[in-house]
Computed example of a mutant assay.
Amino acid sequence: MPIYVGEFSAIRWAPDNSAYYYLRDVIELFEEYEWNWTYHAFREWHGWSVEHSEDPDDYEPFEGETDREKLLKSWFALNKKPS
């Protein structure tokens, strides 16, 4: 039976870069078990945003890419386009 993880995320201002580590760890598990997944709220709310810094008072996207953004993009890049 296929498993689909429809929503997961981590608050961007979690201490000690733990949002990055949490995302990395759960994605690795999803991939290991071949579960399909969707990151929740890529651009819905700044709190979940991977495009914003870890500073909770920063409401503008980060100049460049955050570690969380690079992580997601590295996994997205492995997707195969349907033929």
Rank of each mutant, 00 (worst) to 15 (best):
W45T: 13
H52W: 10
R68D: 01
W48V: 06
E28L: 04
Y20N: 04
L29H: 13
P82M: 01
E60Y: 10
H46W: 13
Y4V: 09
A41M: 11
E69F: 05
V50M: 10
A41L: 12
T66Q: 08
E60K: 13
I27Q: 01
V50N: 06
V5G: 00
D16I: 03
N79F: 00
S74D: 10
Y21E: 05
Y39M: 09
D67Y: 09
I27P: 02
H40N: 13
S9F: 00
E51C: 14
E31R: 12
P2T: 08
S18D: 05
N17K: 15
D55S: 12
E28P: 01
D67C: 07
A41V: 09
E28T: 03
L23A: 04
N79R: 10
P2M: 00
W37T: 09
I3G: 06
L29C: 10
S53V: 12
E69T: 11
V26K: 04
W45A: 11
D25T: 06
H40T: 11
W75M: 04
E34N: 15
E32P: 00
L23S: 03
S9N: 04
L72V: 07
A19P: 02
F76E: 06
E60C: 07
E51F: 15
W37L: 06
Y4N: 07
S9I: 05
K81W: 00
P61C: 11
A77C: 02
E44T: 15
I27N: 06
N36L: 14
R43E: 13
T38A: 15
G6E: 01
L29N: 11
V26H: 08
W45C: 09
A77W: 00
R24I: 01
L71I: 09
L72P: 01
D16P: 05
L71G: 05
Y20V: 02
Y20G: 00
W37H: 05
D57Q: 12
S83M: 01
D58C: 11
E28V: 05
S53E: 14
Y21W: 10
F42I: 14
I11W: 02
W48R: 02
W48Y: 15
S49F: 10
P61M: 08
H46N: 14
A77V: 02
P2Q: 09
W75R: 10
K70Y: 03
R43C: 12
D58L: 09
A41W: 07
L72A: 04
I3P: 01
R24V: 03
Y39R: 09
E7C: 06
N17G: 12
E63M: 12
F42E: 12
S18N: 09
S83D: 08
H52S: 07
D67I: 08
S74M: 11
F42M: 14
Y22S: 03
S18F: 04
K80W: 04
Y59I: 11
Y59D: 10
D55R: 06
I27A: 07
I11A: 00
H52P: 08
D55G: 07
W75Q: 08
E44L: 15
R24D: 06
F62W: 10
E7Y: 04
K81Y: 00
F8D: 03
R43N: 15
Y4K: 03
E34L: 12
A14I: 04
D16F: 07
